[in-house]
Write a protein that binds this DNA or RNA. Structure first.
Lengths: 265, 265
DNA sequence: GCCATTTGGAATGTAAACAATAAACACCTC
DNA sequence: GAGGTGTTTATTGTTTACATTCCAAATGGC
């Protein structure tokens, strides 16, 4: 990530259109470097460039991203609050490795939250929102037929996002999305292997029916069951070979231990 | 404005001195300065030295606390992730003022989470934990008899903390405590006025009975009801004079608006 | 050979300097 | 006087430099 440099494209004279594009670019880039670095780090964690247990070397990352250590530190601290890394005093930030228990507990909490969101949505759904949910489920149907894992995956995320969005409870939405995202980033491989799109989507259909027909408690039950079914799929997935990717790029020295953490208030 | 409770403090003199002492204290505890500053800022928010809407002037705070701007920035960003302040690019960090809707939604989410925690506890309570819960409720009984608001308040917080702790779900505990804490810090006056200790404690008793007798669903229902009753008490409290303390120390210029925020991923 | 101690290098924590931005003010034009 | 335009000033964003801490290999004694 370097300082915005004028792209010296040969055929591109300083036209109004070009200036406009530049401005858009600039406006889009209009966030602090810390934010940008945070996004970059999240991507590196998602893609596996930074594996669980790896230390975030501030100098190295700063050089790599073309910024100084300040924004890198800022990003690392933000990731700590998101739960993606653990910061240890004087030793640095380490990509967290979720143990199975924590994953299961997160599923459990998400089940309750998603269930409540579904109940709220069933009680207050607007027509336009109903249409949107229907179209997303339809998209997943197609993806299932065509065997498009990526397409299904994206639409699946979208479906859950919309449900918690439409429930109208901002804090609940934020918590649910944040923790879902954490699972995705730190356990992506397991999720990929967790397929079984068909079963998942039939659950979506049943849930959607309950929502559309305005049955809050039924929707809550189905949404909770759906989340727990997802947990079960996750468990069978990691049981089959895709075994819990454990720490790999651990630097010298001992592993960071929970006791070292300093974020308990 | 509005009757600042029989305050223990000569008011108006932003006591950075107290925060300062606290800061030095915590330095011995081997925390990064950023952490210490974060704690100091939280205290300043809690005590009202930093009122909702106030901007966190980095230079000023750094000078007051005897550190450089780095740790202050770090702390401000941490508070942003906690939801206590809003950061706007190139304009700084502002103490958030929770609107009523968000408070109510947080109560709603907390009701669901606390209800689930209570259900889990009822299903898996250990003898030592049972004793601890009993003793806390007993302490609240005494506080009610003696009219000790502060003592009741502290024990009340402790009771809820222990329930979510004993439920065994770490992520749920963290989310619940974090959001409860946010309400406490940003709406403390309202809470103080929300008294009605007697009613609250009778709810505690009924909940504890359900937990001790191993009735998860009953415990869930009571815990949810207890939280919603707390919400109702909060509403009547702010309806009576203690009106939602709105922004006061707003600096010149326009108020920060939600659209300015840059933390949506 | 084994263990405690020392010591050097590397990385983090903190401070201070520099650059960029935005609000506020003065000024000019109409 | 209203509206807009340059200029100033305070504050944040970022970089650079310095201090402190930790780890690990090297050293030395037994």
């Amino acid at each position: 990530m370097q300082r915005r440099q004028s792209s010296t494209r040969p055929e591109d004279l300083p036209t109004a259109a070009g200036a406009m594009a530049d401005l858009r670019q600039r406006l889009a880039t209009r966030q602090s470097l810390g934010r940008s670095v945070q996004a970059a780090l999240e991507e590196m964690i998602e893609t596996g460039a930074l594996k669980p247990g790896a230390r975030l070397n501030e100098m190295e990352l700063a050089a790599q991203l073309g910024v100084s250590r300040g924004p890198v530190r800022e990003a690392a601290r933000a990731l700590e609050r998101t739960g993606l890394v653990t910061v240890i005093l004087n030793r640095g930030a380490f990509v967290r490795s979720l143990d199975i228990d924590e994953v299961l507990q997160t599923y459990e909490m998400n089940a309750v939250l998603f269930g409540h969101a579904a109940a709220l949505v069933a009680a207050r759904l607007k027509p336009t929102e109903a249409a949107e949910l229907r179209s997303i489920v339809a998209r997943m149907d197609e993806a299932v037929s065509d065997g498009e894992r990526e397409g299904f995956f994206a639409a699946n995320v979208l479906f859950h996002q919309h449900v918690v969005e439409f429930c109208g409870n901002g804090p609940l939405r934020d918590v649910y999305l944040e923790h879902t995202r954490r699972l995705l980033l730190l356990r992506r491989r397991s999720f990929d292997a967790a397929g079984n799109m068909k079963a998942a989507n039939s659950e979506h259909h049943r849930l959607l029916d309950a929502i559309l027909s305005g049955q809050p408690e039924q929707a809550r039950r189905l949404a909770e069951a759906h989340t727990r079914a997802g947990r079960a799929r996750y468990l069978t997935a990691i049981a089959h070979g895709s075994a819990a990717a454990e720490d790999q790029t651990m630097p010298k020295g001992r592993k960071p231990h929970a006791d070292d953490r300093q974020d308990r208030r």
